[in-house]
Design a protein around this nucleic acid. Structure first.
Lengths: 150, 150
DNA sequence: TGATTCATGTCAGCATTCTGACATACATTG
DNA sequence: CAATGTATGTCAGAATGCTGACATGAATCA
């Protein structure tokens, strides 16, 4: 096993990828016992905080394509966690909402995920946390404005 | 389109996922013209900086399973970007190395990726960057020590 | 009004990654 | 030395996400 101090070890991009990977693994670990994937949880959490989101909006919020979110939504609807009207009242948009069962399922998951986030922030001061927040936001804006956000 | 100020907007975990997603998209965008995926590039970059890494070590460095890295390595070997000895000299470990062709291919990719990283860091001071570095490292350590790193 | 542009929901096919499993090689330990 | 544990490379099947494509509804604009 090599242990050179090389460029990758100094790249913020690489470190960002690593952090995201570790966070995802930690979330999968606590969600697996609940039979829930990260995207699955993200969808439910989004719906809890913004009831009536459409499939496309949920996809953007969970950082997947609307096609991927669609298959998930259909499964969640089939299993009774989510409801959508059979026909759109205005355009083609079908606003989704949590069922009581979906809300119950989300509660356990939220507790589990929050524990991960708490663990992630352990050892960081309030000041550091808000600093991290600003910096990550800055990265997102810089990357978006640069090319595809125009 | 809703625009409530909700919890997700204040979650560092969510923001981390967003940043990672945007970074990945930006990298894919500049690597696509070169016919290269992010994992593909990561593998080459790792080999350039640490020649002789094994398949499993490359997998850990690129945050994928060794099975996934194996299919990539076989393709890279078939196309002449990478070489591995036919038989292991010591254990089962097959140390991989870049061919001249692999090195040439990597050079263009490195330029492209560096431009993305520069764009990402635009508007951040040196102090902020090293602060971000420390904070991300802290997150990684906290999450790892908590469960699977023991 | 009619044409164009854009966003949505959804279907089908493809690509990538993962999980599971197996044989092998070394290290450790009794 | 034998047994166990750990790590590796690799194959096969399953899951997940993506790209491409289509029809439809709404908004924009000449």
């Amino acid at each position: 096993m090599n242990q050179d101090g090389v460029d990758l070890e100094r790249s913020l991009g690489y470190l960002l990828k690593e952090a995201s990977s570790v966070l995802r693994a930690a979330m999968e670990e606590v969600l697996r016992p609940l039979g829930m994937s990260v995207t699955h949880y993200s969808c439910l959490e989004l719906l809890a905080q913004r009831p009536g989101l459409s499939n496309s909006e949920l996809a953007r919020g969970a950082f997947v394509t609307r096609q991927s979110m669609n298959v998930l939504l259909q499964a969640l609807e089939r299993d009774g966690y989510v409801t959508r009207p059979a026909e759109a009242s205005v355009g083609k948009v079908l606003p989704a909402r949590l069922t009581p069962r979906g809300r119950r399922s989300l509660e356990k998951a939220t507790v589990a995920v929050r524990s991960v986030e708490v663990r992630m922030l352990a050892g960081m001061t309030e000041t550091e946390q808000s600093g991290a927040f600003r910096i990550l936001q800055s990265m997102v804006h810089s990357l978006r404005d640069g090319n595809d956000g125009a």
